[in-house]
Simulated assay, not measured.
Amino acid sequence: MKSFVYIITDRNRKNLHVGMCSDLLKTIKFYSEMPTLFFDSANQLNRLVYFEEINTEEQAMARFQQVSTFTRMQKEKMIRQVNTDWIDLTAGLNYESGIRVRPSVYGRPSIQPTRRAVAL
């Protein structure tokens, strides 16, 4: 089963929180639903700036423990290697998950040929 090791931060990049989960979108949604779980509202963790997808849970746990011991400078260097502008990666994840969802037959507009008036 795939697992993720991620780093999430607040809007000012003051706090870097390292975590591990099996469903990244669900975890990000949890952070948005519980904004003051770890910090007050000014330091709300809401920007996913780094994540790794790892194949096994044992490897993910080892990587999580390794990244958790990193200093702030090491974490920042790791983030900047893949996300130089520290943009929120959640939008890309939402987009990718939307591609995998099969569209509903009832939600699509019907395709009908357009009729043109014939000039005589």
Results as ranks from 00 to 15, higher is better:
F64C: 05
R63W: 04
R80K: 12
M78E: 08
N55Q: 13
T90R: 13
R102F: 00
R72G: 07
N94H: 01
N15R: 05
N12S: 09
N46I: 11
L93A: 08
F70W: 14
L24S: 01
N12H: 04
S41H: 06
D10C: 12
S97E: 14
L37R: 08
P113G: 05
Q112H: 06
M1R: 08
Q74E: 15
R116P: 00
T9P: 05
I111F: 01
Q66M: 03
M34D: 04
A60G: 12
R102S: 07
F39N: 14
T69L: 12
Q65P: 00
F70S: 02
E57L: 10
L120A: 08
V18C: 13
I54K: 09
G19Q: 03
T9W: 04
N94Y: 06
F30Y: 06
V101L: 13
F64S: 01
M73Y: 06
Q74C: 01
N15E: 02
S22N: 06
G98S: 15
E58H: 13
Q112N: 08
F4Y: 15
V49G: 05
L24N: 01
L24E: 01
S68L: 07
A62M: 07
T27K: 13
K14Y: 08
L16P: 01
K77L: 10
V5L: 09
L25T: 03
